[in-house]
Design a binder for these strands. Structure first.
Length: 876
DNA sequence: CAAGTGCGGC
DNA sequence: GATGCGCCGCACTTGA
């Protein structure tokens, strides 16, 4: 890796920070605005630049060697305000604590130190970045050195590369000193040539190159006045240039090696931040700053004999697991926090205690937890049914703001200012190879602290839910759904391992065929799975035109390869190879890895608290992306079979649920009408967009219309549509415009939703799910556009998620009521998959669509298609 | 171990 | 004028 040296002009940055920020002071009356600004810039540099080496240079001494040349150098400057002077010692301390080297040299300016070190570093092949507020330093810019000039405020910078200098000034970096020579510099009291400003200076330099050449060519310069001025100020111009020239061989006594950045001393940094009163900085270090930050003392009693008296009243409960994957239920222990006492119970004591198990299974004994599904599933694997949970902190936090981190109790506690009361799970267990169970005392404390936080946070979070009008979403939808999902996960999906093996073998053989062919066509062997190597083969060795580039090289994505297919035989071979390779590694090998050997089942985990829209996601394995689009991949579904002989797979899916939701939310008359009459929505759209009769709609028109419909649902951009249809952005925009003209209700909805979201700060779904969109007011076009599309899309996708979730609850309830053996196995966003005895299929065909279609009543009917078969493949 | 690329689903 | 489709998870390579 190339080494990177960041050089900071300390005085310049301190001045900038001081004048950019209001005159803050801490509780001891020390002014801190420059220190604060300096800290902000430092942290940003460390984060963004990730320097291997760093140094902050300061001016030292009232006079410098430049004063010998020109006694009035830097004359007329305002004295440094005392409010700023007093801050410099803290800035130096700050740097020391940060482990960043600093340097000053009597009679030299920071510029000269930077100029000298940057040159040394360049010779050592470092990448150099200079941070300053002073444009003088632009003269240091080179292919290896970038100079970032702070703009208004303190965090925004303009980074100057040689190209940028040329773009901005039309000259090269070594002509910057000539520019100063001609135009002078007011702030440093460098005179320059009177009457010549930036424009004229640049014009002259573009023509003649340097101050010397300008002065040699005065007779060629037009304008009498100008000639006179230059003639009169020859000496001054040359001196000015000299003054502006940064010394690149100053006698500094610090080596490059000494500037190596080794990281900060956290303890000292926290102490310094506390002294300065930098709360936001402390927060960034995950340090608790609130006044009530004193650690609550907790002395859990380790119970070896659980009695009913230990379990009285409302109890917060942690079921502590080691594995991230909760199937198999390797429980470590239980934490309990009741009204007064707190207890820790180890796994064996707990599960062997009749009293405790009875309490866990008692619906009337109310419990609060973090992640009910995790707890319930882990217990289910231990033959215990968790009941009576009326509060899940994880689900509550997710509903209140899905964007916030809720990975563990600590993360949620921090949201309410209790960050200091509990450690993160990763802190306690470690991560990666170092992950391990701590000693029982630490484990007990951690487990109980988490329960304590659940207890503490229950009321505040319930209040938030109430304020958001989300109590019903919480109590009547997500909480019960968690248990339904848990049942589905534990039920698992049965796999036909022979079929899987068979397919793996066949695909493996075909893969080696393709591999051989590809090597022959390429004339060499290489790793086809490496985009980098593939890029070299295709675009360098075989000379195909690179259509798109990625951050790191040529793009070899499928859409690029498809465009190249006609140019060389190898391309379609590679596409085939990729397709089969994906099937083999992700779906054959991937699934085999997670099958439970005793039962030949896979047990996915549905993440209920992750997506920003309210959808579920699925992991280990992800059963929401099993291939279906291509015939080859679809066959994978033949391996998904019922868990009993004489059973079937039954699948029911919503037809166009998102467009129906859109019709309802937007109250678009035409769209509502189309769905009421169950018209082919893509054909209907084509008729409207292309203004033709039904029988004039060509396949291509329908294809375009379909893409537009997709785009509308996904929060379309012209670019997005152009990509999916392979048309120009302009054409895509035209389609969108015509669509919106055709569906004025949708048009109005799109406009209104953005407006409303801007005012409220968030969008909601039919069941009051919420997503905040702060970036709607961003000045950054990209961020804002993205937020706008999200504002349009989330209510649609999210409401569809609400609907199917409600359907799942109702279906599960009905299956139990009707005493059916059928089991709900999977949800794939708009479809539900079941396994059932063949004898029940007839009932399901009636029950499931009916429940799904009436989960929520909209202005349009919901339509559900269904099918069944021996395997998932056949349920089509 | 993390980031980047690529690709499967709705 | 910009710059990239909405929501996910997993496999693989690469470079630390």
């Amino acid at each position: 890796m190339t080494k990177k040296l960041v050089l900071v002009d300390g005085n310049s940055i301190a001045y900038r920070a001081f004048f950019a920020l209001p005159l803050l002071s801490n509780d001891k009356g020390i002014h801190t605005n420059a220190i604060y600004g300096f800290t902000t810039i430092l942290t940003r540099i460390l984060e963004e630049e990730k320097p291997t080496h760093m140094l902050v240079a300061f001016d030292a001494g009232k006079t410098t060697f430049r004063h010998k040349t020109f006694t009035e150098y830097k004359g007329g400057r305002q004295k440094t305000p005392p409010e700023l002077s007093e801050q410099f010692s803290f800035i130096r301390e700050l740097l020391d604590v940060y482990g960043i080297s600093r340097y000053e040299l009597t009679n030299y300016e920071a510029d000269d130190i930077i100029g000298t070190l940057s040159l040394t570093a360049e010779k050592e092949d470092f990448e150099v970045k200079v941070i300053t507020g002073d444009k003088d330093l632009l003269q240091l810019v080179s292919p290896k050195t970038t100079v970032a000039i702070t703009k208004k405020g303190i965090t925004e910078v303009d980074a100057f590369t040689p190209e940028k200098i040329d773009e901005t000034y039309g000259i090269s970096s070594n002509q910057i000193i000539d520019m100063k020579g001609l135009m002078g510099d007011k702030s440093d009291n460098i005179p320059g040539v009177e009457g010549i400003g930036e424009k004229t200076a640049l014009k002259l330099l573009k023509e003649f190159g340097s101050v010397e050449e300008v002065l040699n060519s005065i007779d060629q310069i037009s304008g009498k006045k100008m000639k006179e001025r230059l003639e009169e100020n020859k000496e001054t111009a040359l001196m000015s240039k000299e003054l502006a020239t940064i010394m690149r061989d100053s006698p500094i006594e610090i080596s490059l090696a000494e500037t190596e950045y080794k990281g900060y001393d956290e303890e000292k940094l926290i102490a310094l931040y506390k002294e300065l009163g930098f709360k936001s900085m402390l927060e960034k270090l995950d340090v608790e700053v609130s006044e009530s930050a004193e650690l609550q003392e907790i002395h859990p009693t380790v119970l070896k004999d659980v009695k009913e008296e230990h379990l009285e009243g409302n109890v917060a409960l942690t079921v502590e697991l080691f594995d991230e994957n909760y199937h198999h239920g390797d429980i470590l222990g239980f934490g309990l926090v009741g009204e007064k006492e707190s207890y820790y119970i180890d796994r064996d004591t707990a599960l062997q205690s009749e009293v405790f198990v009875k309490w866990l299974e008692d619906e009337s004994k109310k419990k609060a937890v973090f992640d009910i599904k995790r707890a319930a599933v882990a217990l289910k694997w231990n033959h215990v049914e968790l009941r009576g949970v009326d509060f899940d902190l994880l689900i509550a936090a997710y509903l209140i703001d899905p964007a916030q981190s809720h990975e563990d109790v600590a993360a949620v506690a921090k949201l309410k200012g209790y960050g200091g009361q509990v450690q993160g799970d990763e802190e306690v267990y470690g991560k990666g190879a170092k992950r391990a169970v701590p000693n029982e005392e630490s484990l007990a404390e951690h487990t109980v602290r988490k329960a304590f936080m659940i207890k503490t946070l229950k009321e505040p979070f319930l209040k938030d839910l109430e304020e958001n009008n989300q109590l019903s979403l919480f109590n009547d939808l997500e909480m019960p759904l968690a248990l339904v999902l848990g049942e589905m996960e534990v039920q698992g999906v049965h796999m036909d391992m022979n079929r899987l093996e068979e397919m793996g073998k066949e695909i493996g053989e075909r893969l080696s065929e393709y591999e051989k062919n590809i090597y022959a066509l390429a004339g060499e062997e290489f790793n086809i799975n490496s985009p980098k190597q593939l890029g070299v083969v295709l675009f360098e060795n075989l000379g195909l035109p690179p259509i798109k580039k990625t951050k790191t090289g040529y793009s070899t994505s499928a859409d690029v390869l498809e465009k190249l297919a006609s140019k060389h035989e190898i391309v379609s071979e590679i596409l085939q190879y990729r397709q089969l390779g994906k099937l083999q590694s992700t779906y054959i090998e991937g699934l085999k890895k997670v099958v439970y050997k005793e039962t030949d089942k896979v047990h996915t985990r549905f993440n209920q608290t992750l997506t920003q829209t309210g959808r579920l996601s699925s992991t280990d394995p992800n059963l929401q992306n099993i291939p279906i689009r291509l015939e080859e991949g679809k066959k994978i579904r033949q391996a998904f079979v019922p868990s009993h002989e004489g059973w079937m797979i039954f699948a029911a899916d919503y037809s166009q649920i998102e467009l129906r939701v859109l019709a309802h939310i937007a109250q678009d008359k035409k769209l509502i009408n189309a769905f009421k009459h169950d018209l082919d929505i893509h054909t209907q759209t084509a008729m409207d967009v292309f203004k033709v009769e039904r029988d004039e709609v060509t396949d291509n028109m329908r294809r375009h219309a379909k893409a537009v419909n997709f785009g509308i649902v996904y929060g379309i951009s012209d670019y997005g549509l152009s990509q999916s249809l392979n048309i120009s952005r302009k054409e895509a925009q035209k389609f969108i415009d015509r669509y919106l003209e055709s569906f004025p209700g949708v048009q109005a909805y799109m406009n209104n939703i953005i407006q409303d979201a801007k005012e409220a700060g968030y969008v909601t779904t039919l069941l009051h799910r919420r997503r905040y969109l702060p970036e709607l007011t961003s000045r950054n076009f990209n961020l804002r556009s993205f937020a706008e599309r999200t504002a349009m899309n989330t209510p649609i996708q999210g409401s569809a998620a609400d609907i199917i979730k409600k359907a799942m609850l109702e279906v599960q309830k009905r299956l139990k009521e009707e005493e059916l053996e059928a089991k709900l196995l999977l949800q794939v966003h708009d479809e539900l998959i079941f396994e059932a005895p063949t004898s029940e299929i007839e009932k399901l065909q009636k029950l499931v669509p009916e429940v799904m279609e009436h989960a929520i009543e909209l202005s349009v009917p919901l339509k559900v298609d269904h099918a069944y078969g021996e395997t998932w493949f056949d349920a089509k």
